[in-house]
């Protein structure tokens, strides 16, 4: 469970890192001015520079995401941090109460995917995918899923 999870996050974290690397070698002239002013991002987009990908995503996110969804994202980020901490602890200090580690870690992972599901289901753009799931229904499902998840975690933690 652990390696996959961290890789996902790595991918998200790695995106900007890779971007700067390629920019430096490929198109230094264009990318240099594009970093400061936000209006230059439009110009950078056409030039296919990798750095524009990151800024695009960021601005897109800030523009289109409602406040509530941002809260959900914050919670998900928090879960990733907690899960990462547990994993690091497991690697550094050993996994002795393996039950406890597993249930703690899977609680964060499980809660993460449930929250992600809630986020997906409540996003306006995905409406067409979920004809039968209203936002209220999504939240009710989320609560039920979380209850089951934590019941199993508590039962497993010893």
């Amino acid at each position: 469970m652990a390696p996959k999870k961290s890789q996902t996050k790595d991918a998200s974290a790695a995106a900007p890192v890779v971007t700067t690397g390629t920019t430096a070698s490929a198109v230094p002239a264009v990318s240099a001015p594009s970093k400061k002013p936000s209006s230059a991002a439009v110009a950078a987009k056409s030039s296919d520079a990798w750095s524009s990908v990151a800024t695009n995503i960021l601005s897109h996110y800030q523009k289109t995401t409602p406040q509530r969804t941002k809260l959900i994202d914050l919670f998900m980020a928090f879960l990733v941090v907690v899960g990462g901490l547990q994993f690091v602890y497991c690697v550094v200090a050993g996994n002795y109460p393996f039950n406890a580690f597993l249930s703690g870690f899977s609680a964060t992972v499980g809660q993460f995917v449930l929250t992600a599901s809630l986020r997906i289901q409540t996003t306006e753009a995905n409406k067409a995918d979920f004809p039968s799931v209203s936002p209220e229904r999504a939240f009710a499902d989320y609560v039920v899923g979380s209850l089951i998840l934590h019941f199993f975690c508590v039962n497993f933690i010893n």
Binding site: L102, V109, V113, G145, F152
Partner: peptide, 12 residues
Amino acid sequence: TTWYALGTLASM
């Protein structure tokens, strides 16, 4: 993801 996260815990 729901099935896996909950199902794996259940199986354990």
